[in-house]
């Protein structure tokens, strides 16, 4: 499988709109043609060629297409927008909105990613070796539908509102997470292996949040249900024991919070509600 390699030639000091870079758009295209593609750098239209050194070839078959992007893309937006197959690998910061509305395929970021990683995602896989910003898998402003499918794996930390308005799919964060993971969540699973700064599952109506690390406190609008020894996340068993809460009652919700007992002695008070 040969790769199409895009290497950033120069520093970019303005927002760079790269929604064109996806296997769906580039597969089967010659590098010459790709170099002529026009993108916005701030308010100017520039050719991809002027931004990137373009080498290699994009496979004709979408599923086999591999695009490698080398350079600091931290001012770029929407790499992999709406992609449905193939692979994008970014060596460096991935920028904002990596994989927005992605439907399939795979994005690998060797580095950090900015906010709105995998926003509106419907399918496929995103892996980030570093940390991600706020609003991972978020919904577009004003709508109540965030991630509806696929998998996001963040090896480092994630910001606040991870998986807000999520309806389905899986998010796994190996590091810690900011506030409000799973806010307004309707379905799907979020697993935070590190600590969480709080307010997990605020306004959630469905879905499951598993917190292996520390959570300062549970919102008062959740009901303590039970203690479970383990739980499933995707195909894996995660060992507990976990305090299990349901909520958010304020939204008439039926979501589940699994909070690891060993990391959260401050929640011991809830054990008094255990039926004996």
């Amino acid at each position: 499988m040969s790769a199409l390699e895009l290497t950033l030639r120069r520093t970019v000091m303005a927002p760079l709109y790269l929604d064109i870079i996806s296997p769906d758009n580039l597969s089967g295209k010659r590098w010459r043609e790709i170099g002529d593609y026009i993108v916005w750098e701030g308010n100017r239209k520039v050719k991809l060629r002027s931004l990137f050194k373009i080498e290699g070839e994009a496979e004709a078959n979408l599923q086999d297409t591999l695009i490698e992007i080398v350079g600091d893309m931290s001012r770029a937006r929407r790499i992999g927008y709406r992609m449905s197959g193939g692979v994008i690998r970014v060596r460096g910061h991935g920028g904002l909105y990596v994989g927005e509305s992605m439907r399939g395929g795979r994005i690998i970021v060797d580095g950090d990613a900015g906010p709105w990683l995998g926003a509106n995602m419907a399918g496929g896989t995103i892996e980030v070796s570093g940390s991600a910003g706020d609003h991972v898998a978020a919904a577009s402003l004003g709508t109540d539908k965030g991630m509806t499918g696929g998998t996001i794996i963040v090896k480092g930390d994630s910001g606040s509102q991870t998986g807000a308005w999520m309806h389905s799919g899986l998010i796994r964060v190996s590091g810690s997470s900011g506030m409000f993971p799973g806010a307004h969540m309707r379905g799907g699973t979020i697993h935070i292996i590190g600590d969480c700064s709080g307010r997990a599952g605020a306004n959630m109506r469905g879905g499951k949040i598993v917190l292996s690390g520390k959570l300062p406190t549970v919102l008062p609008s959740f009901t303590f249900e039970d203690i479970r020894s383990q739980t499933r996340v995707d195909k894996d068993n995660v060992e507990g024991p976990f305090y299990v809460f349901s909520g958010d009652n304020n939204e008439g919700g039926d979501g589940r919070l699994f909070i690891k007992k060993a990391s959260n002695p401050q929640l011991k008070w809830c054990e008094k509600f255990l039926e004996v």
Binding site: A202, P220, S221, T223, D248, N249, N250, W269, C270
Partner: peptide
């Protein structure tokens, strides 16, 4: 959040 729960008439466990 607690106020919302109380307004709904839910019991606050904490």
């Amino acid at each position: 959040s607690a106020l919302r729960a109380a307004v709904r008439g839910d019991e606050i466990e904490q």
